[in-house]
Computed example of a mutant assay.
Amino acid sequence: MESVTHSILLSPPDVGPDEAAAVARALESGWVAPAGPDLTAFEREAAARVGSPHAVAVSSGTAALHLSLLAAGVGPGDVVPTSTMTFAATANAIRYTGARPVFVDSTDIDGNIDVVLLRSVLRRLRDGGQRIGAVVPVDLLGHVVDYTAISALCDEFEAPFIADAAESFGSLHRGRPVGSFGFSSCVSFNGNKIMTTSGGGMVFTDSPDVAERLRYLATQARQPVAHYEHTEVGYNYRLSNVLAALGRAQLRRLDSMIERRRAVRTAYRDVLDRIPGVRVLGRVSQDQHENCWLTAVVVDPDRAGWAASDLARALAAADVESRPLWKPMHLQPAHAGADAAVTGVAESLFLRGLALPSGSSLCDDDLDRVLSVIRSVAG
């Protein structure tokens, strides 16, 4: 193998001169605060992108989830069913409110929440007299959950549907943009996401009252009077105007960045689908038009003759970053003893799955380097 000259990262920020110019203009405007014209415009433009009447830009995807749960009235004593295969932020935000997460296992095809299992969990909780504060499914690695089925379940069980779409901004479900579903939808603009504001997130909602409540809580719950008056506890969760300027520039490039990630996934599929015991995580469906945020391989070691961990070691030796899939929340020490409906699928995907470099800035030469390592391991 030719000498390695640089690291290949999993999903680095894809920023350039457009973003630099936008940030410079924001700085020159003097609006270097969590308020300003770029922040207002970013919310308006992002809302238009997803077809949602209201958007509230905040400091992180975690903040978006926390605020949404509070706005839905979730609090101590409530239970909140959610995906067990997710980043810690989902479960942490539920815990912030004093509610208890109930972890629901995954489907093997894409790692998303098992809707049939979710129904049984909701029935058990209701029949047990527990208050279901909300339901929070997660779009794993940009794979979109069955929003249609989950919306129907939430209506049936009279529970607010809060979509953790942190990883799926730009995706569609049955032709409808992610961000336009549920009581609210929460996205992340962290540095490794499909588009970035460095750190940041956003909540989309159809309700003007919910949007007003979110903004109020995100600005320290300050009352609209001349002095500083607070009748309840709020949070310092608003996004900076400077970072919103970065987000506006990224939003204009979103379609091209998604197109590149799809091309990367196609290249992986062309190689991986030929290897016995190996598959790309996720389904190929016109109903689920995904942003391809991260492409992950799932390896059956008995059939392939090698494991995902073997590939991870070979990639690391070539200075290529990879990452196991999320360790399920029901296996995390921080949530030991939590209620969970488990089938073993999420744990199996954690042990057999590996996320591969998927960034929109991944050039063809670097992609070839990754594919060469995969071929060498596969023999």
Rank of each mutant, 00 (worst) to 15 (best):
147 Y>L: 15
116 V>M: 07
262 R>W: 12
180 S>L: 05
35 A>C: 03
369 R>S: 13
111 G>Q: 12
227 H>R: 14
69 L>F: 14
34 P>V: 10
87 F>D: 10
245 A>P: 02
285 S>T: 09
246 L>D: 05
17 P>H: 10
113 I>N: 10
218 A>T: 03
17 P>V: 11
15 V>R: 05
315 L>I: 01
312 A>H: 04
147 Y>T: 09
62 T>R: 03
28 E>Y: 01
22 A>E: 12
256 S>H: 07
124 R>M: 09
297 V>F: 09
263 A>M: 01
138 V>F: 07
267 A>Q: 01
67 L>D: 01
226 A>M: 02
308 A>G: 12
168 S>G: 15
159 A>Q: 14
61 G>Y: 08
350 F>T: 05
42 F>D: 11
223 Q>G: 14
33 A>S: 14
182 G>T: 11
42 F>V: 05
104 V>F: 08
15 V>C: 03
169 F>K: 13
50 V>Y: 10
91 A>Q: 02
11 S>L: 06
79 V>H: 03
272 L>D: 01
241 N>H: 07
281 L>M: 12
343 T>L: 06
313 R>K: 00
359 G>Q: 11
228 Y>T: 02
114 D>P: 03
111 G>S: 09
310 D>G: 09
185 S>A: 00
182 G>S: 06
285 S>R: 09
366 D>R: 12
161 F>P: 01
149 A>N: 07
168 S>D: 09
252 R>N: 03
294 L>E: 12
181 F>W: 11
97 T>I: 15
332 Q>S: 15
76 P>M: 03
125 L>E: 04
206 D>P: 14
335 H>D: 13
375 R>A: 10
21 A>I: 00
6 H>V: 12
70 L>Q: 03
265 R>Q: 11
36 G>P: 02
159 A>P: 04
166 A>C: 04
22 A>C: 03
103 F>E: 00
30 G>M: 09
55 A>C: 15
337 G>Q: 02
198 S>V: 12
105 D>F: 00
121 V>P: 00
340 A>H: 12
51 G>N: 10
307 A>R: 06
209 D>A: 08
365 D>M: 02
1 M>I: 11
15 V>E: 02
142 G>S: 01
368 D>M: 09
34 P>C: 03
254 L>A: 08
106 S>E: 11
300 D>W: 05
314 A>C: 15
320 V>S: 01
184 S>V: 14
151 S>V: 13
103 F>T: 00
85 M>K: 07
185 S>Q: 14
303 R>Q: 06
14 D>E: 05
54 H>M: 04
25 R>T: 04
18 D>L: 10
107 T>P: 02
267 A>R: 05
55 A>I: 11
123 R>P: 08
321 E>Y: 03
134 A>D: 10
279 R>K: 03
174 R>G: 06
109 I>V: 01
267 A>V: 07
107 T>C: 07
162 I>V: 13
171 S>F: 07
131 R>P: 09
188 S>M: 05
221 A>D: 05
162 I>N: 08
39 L>A: 01
64 A>M: 13
257 M>R: 13
270 D>R: 09
213 R>A: 08
333 P>K: 06
95 R>C: 14
183 F>P: 00
59 S>M: 00
51 G>L: 10
